[in-house]
């Protein structure tokens, strides 16, 4: 009985330690050492453009909705929509050449007809 009281915690501790170590070591054995997915710096610029595009698109959407709710007056809307569209278009264009040139961008995305209905 006494022996069990002393030995049991030791065994338990050892078991926990071994399990933890196996788990910690497993990636070293099992996974392959791929290079990090990025050749980072080349992608940084592209990432920035993508983020910039999403920001510009979201801003446009928001402007349109705010205009519709009346938060943005007609005049403010007219003043802002041009530059915002221009900026969004600019990011789209900038993203273009990096994609495969033979594939026209956007060709596989939503059909314009649907777009008209929704927005």
């Amino acid at each position: 009985m006494m022996v069990a009281l002393i030995v049991l915690p030791v065994i338990l501790t050892a078991a926990v330690t071994i399990a933890a170590m196996l788990y910690v070591a497993s990636p070293l054995v099992r996974e392959s050492e791929l290079p990090r997915a990025s050749s980072a710096d080349g992608l940084a610029r592209r990432l920035e453009l993508v983020e910039e595009r999403d920001r510009a698109l979201a801003a446009l959407k928001e402007l349109e909705f705010d205009h519709r709710t009346g938060k943005v007056s007609d005049r403010d809307y007219r003043e802002q929509v041009g530059p915002l569209r221009r900026r969004a278009a600019e990011t789209l264009r900038a993203l273009e050449p990096a994609a495969k040139p033979d594939r026209p961008a956007g060709s596989r995305r939503a059909t314009p007809s649907r777009a008209k209905v929704r927005s």
Partner: peptide, 29 residues
């Protein structure tokens, strides 16, 4: 500002403008 875009909306290349509208529609789904 880039010179060819100075006057904004109306001068946006029509192809680019269409793409922009598509992107916007995509966002709205």
């Amino acid at each position: 500002a880039k010179p060819h875009l100075v006057n904004g909306f109306s001068e946006l290349d029509p192809k680019l403008a269409r793409r922009l509208d598509e992107e916007l529609a995509l966002l709205d789904r």
